[in-house]
């Protein structure tokens, strides 16, 4: 019974820490610290998943969110110097819209939580079988399968990758319509200032 008590105390301890870190992530004035609080919050919710016997979900949570998204956020903060800038206070009307939207979302979330039945499983399946089942369900075509959403997500990721490449691309090779032109404009100004004559975008290769 001591084991059960320890389990319960740990569970509520982790939950409280998750809530505190989530609040810290929203309220911190320094962006990098907010990102760190977010990392702690995501890692501790992975701990909650492990306590609920969803090991695979916990692993994916750390892999995707801590190793991927938070690292990217930190990269963005470090590259843009935005950590030193304080954001402008939003206008009053924007604050009102934001407040109403978040209250409405909270109502929807609470409603969904209250109306969904959560059957309690005392003995969860071991994680090995769980992974196998997830893998099979993702590639199954029938009504219980998730093949279509799975493929749609891969399409979405492909679009994101191509979009990122297009934006990051600096110059425009000839006769290719799908580019933004990048910073050619700025380069043209610099070269014009140097007195090297007029440079039209697209003159330079690669």
């Amino acid at each position: 019974m001591i084991a059960d008590a320890v389990y319960t105390v740990m569970f509520y301890g982790f939950s409280a820490a998750v809530v505190i870190l989530a609040l810290a992530a929203v309220n911190m004035r320094q962006l990098l610290r907010a990102a760190l609080a977010l990392m702690g919050m995501l890692a501790l919710s992975a701990a909650l998943y492990i306590m609920l016997r969803a090991e695979f979900l916990a692993g994916v949570q750390i892999l995707v969110y801590v190793g991927g998204i938070v690292v990217l956020i930190v990269f963005a903060i470090m590259l843009t110097r935005s950590s030193e800038l304080l954001e402008d206070l939003p206008r009053t009307s924007t604050r009102w819209y934001g407040g109403v939207a978040s209250i409405l979302f909270m109502l929807v979330a609470c409603g969904a939580l209250c109306m969904t039945p959560f059957p309690v499983q005392s003995n969860a399946e071991p994680a090995g079988d769980e992974i196998r089942k997830i893998g099979l369900a993702l590639l199954e075509q029938g009504s219980s399968g998730y093949l279509l959403p799975f493929e749609l997500i891969s399409l979405l990721l492909l679009v994101a990758v191509i979009g990122g490449t297009v934006i990051a691309r600096k110059t425009r090779p000839r006769n290719q319509p799908f580019t933004t032109g990048g910073d050619l404009h700025g380069e043209a100004i610099v070269q014009a200032a140097r007195g090297q004559g007029d440079v039209t975008p697209g003159d330079r290769h690669s």
Binding site: E55, G59, I62, L63, V71, M78, I131
Partner: peptide, 21 residues
Amino acid sequence: LNIGILFITAIGGFGVMGILI
């Protein structure tokens, strides 16, 4: 762990964070 390999790849993220910070 049942998710050993997944966990090993996942936990590397903390190392990157340590270096970046």
